[in-house]
Design a protein around this nucleic acid. Sequence first.
DNA 1: ATTAGCAACGAAAACGTTTGCGTGTTGACA
DNA 2: TGTCAACACGCAAACGTTTTCGTTGCTAAT
Lengths: 352, 352
Amino acid sequence: MIINLHMKKKITLKQIARELDVSISTVSKALRDSLEISEDTRQKVQAFAKFYNYRPNNIALSLQNQKTKTIGVIIPEIVHHFFSKVIRGIELVANKRGYNVIIGLSNESFDKEIINMQMLASGSIDGFILSISKETLQKQDYHHFKETINQGMPIVMFDRVVNEINCDKVIIDDLKGSKNAVTKLLSNGCENVAIITTKDYVSVGKLRTQGYLEALEDYKITPDPNLILKVNDELVSEDHLESLEAEIKGLFQNNKNIDGVFAVNELYAIIAMKVARNMGMKIPDDLQVIGFTDGVLSKHATPSLTTVSQHGQEMGEKAAELLIDNLEREDEEEHFETVVIETELIERDSTK
Amino acid sequence: MIINLHMKKKITLKQIARELDVSISTVSKALRDSLEISEDTRQKVQAFAKFYNYRPNNIALSLQNQKTKTIGVIIPEIVHHFFSKVIRGIELVANKRGYNVIIGLSNESFDKEIINMQMLASGSIDGFILSISKETLQKQDYHHFKETINQGMPIVMFDRVVNEINCDKVIIDDLKGSKNAVTKLLSNGCENVAIITTKDYVSVGKLRTQGYLEALEDYKITPDPNLILKVNDELVSEDHLESLEAEIKGLFQNNKNIDGVFAVNELYAIIAMKVARNMGMKIPDDLQVIGFTDGVLSKHATPSLTTVSQHGQEMGEKAAELLIDNLEREDEEEHFETVVIETELIERDSTK
DNA sequence: ATTAGCAACGAAAACGTTTGCGTGTTGACA
DNA sequence: TGTCAACACGCAAACGTTTTCGTTGCTAAT
């Protein structure tokens, strides 16, 4: 970068001290309104500092205080309505409490998750907020979380959490949320409710399936294995929409009596509606559909989709609160919370 | 945080030095495979360091090198498909080139934009990638950008840029993109094409309107002011969807002859389709619609929406490349690029 | 025997802060 | 005049690195 004439480089305490012919400590104290410094020099220093737009160097402060006032967030994917809402929540309270947010994307990969955590853990941040990648969940290898915690760096997990790790957690009651949703379908008169879910290693998929089963049980309905579609996760990756459609189409064709669908995420629900419509079914008359997550798709689909809202932003806010509380706690006893964010059934036009 | 017995705190050079009874510099050199150090002690040090999982402290390195290897991103909103795609692009190349990404949200507010930039500019980052907030564009007050640049911190702007500031920029050819879209409508037989756009102070809104006008001109059509709807931006804030709908409904009712709509963003297009359908119009038979941006809504709407893709991820990648190139450039002559990312008309079912 | 040269290591500065403590200069008071 | 506060300020350490420049002790060559 060329040094223009009008370029005001960042100024340091040392430079101010030299210009004003005082010591560095005097400048520092003057700027912090220390009583040790005379009114005279204090004003002189402050005026000078203001004129040159002095700001303390964060890096130096971090090195000194052994705190960065920065929290690291590791998420599997950012192009995702839920995760971006969580980030917004995190950013909101982090900023309010004087913290910055630094983002790492695991891209659902075990290795990238580790790499990212190592980079950030080397001094850049004070603590983590994260949601575990699918690959990690599949491998069930959580040593990097344990090591991080053992090094004294706190972690807050959200949404995709795991019992093996002892730390603060923010989750939704997946079981209750999905049970509510399915109950809604049943009370609306559905007699053959199908579920479109994921493989069991994704904890949320498993729990939501369980909620589905419990709702059926309450209504004395024996679950029909044919009505439980466990979609291959890899198929959702943008490209394989057709195979996803095909799977769902198969579900409908093999079970002509389906009159209700509960999908564990938004996309599955939207696709299900599309497929059903193409097969001549009317929504919500012939088929009622409920999805999970509070994305844009649900709101603007036709018909708009009844859905279980996860309150992503609230999750982010709570996670940040937990982490920062932990970071700033004076009394040092260890105690971890698991906060459950209430879900909410947002009724729209895909149900009666 | 309580000190558990199994807690391995982060270890420093100094501690390694003390344990092995050598000097700090010896440890440092040994770890960096310096020739000054004997094979013997080198192996001893490296083994010890590996055992205790030593990692150099980023903060100390930053202070020393006067570089943080971190880039700051300021965006107006993160719960937005376009911006999250850009971030993904930034993160991708940043990580590949050894940089971290720290996020600040302006929330479309002038003040928050400034606050955020000041926080990050105080040593935390090496350079900025940003998209200007609406309020800033409205105020036309860009002093904070100028000051940042004058302090020697490079900025790359994307999407919402401004001529007054001399820096690297990544934009799309809004004019060309929208002209293409409108031309498509016209060549498809539309005779009365309306545009749903924003107030002019949002540069992209202005340019896209201009593209609309040029396309009409090519077809020797005199623009009808009644067909140009400039929506009040504040109405888009999630809550005011009804007023947005009402405005668009008014457009259709007052101009029964409309057979084509070009909307400067995805949401406007989706709402327009919804309103039209409610008024009994068939898409694409009675009305053809094209939107702008490559969001999820377009893809999964019914009918799916023909749209001008902005290639958000590519924009992010390019912005990061420009910034890091600038940061790592040795020869210091100043030269700023403005990269134009090509748009792409993705044809789907809302056009013939 | 002297010395040049080399191998192996340590001391110290630097990055920008904050802060406990030491020190010098006042003035008042006995 | 001597004593002692109070006041205003500077010194230096500390945070964790890297790197330049010594400083040893030894070997080999003159």
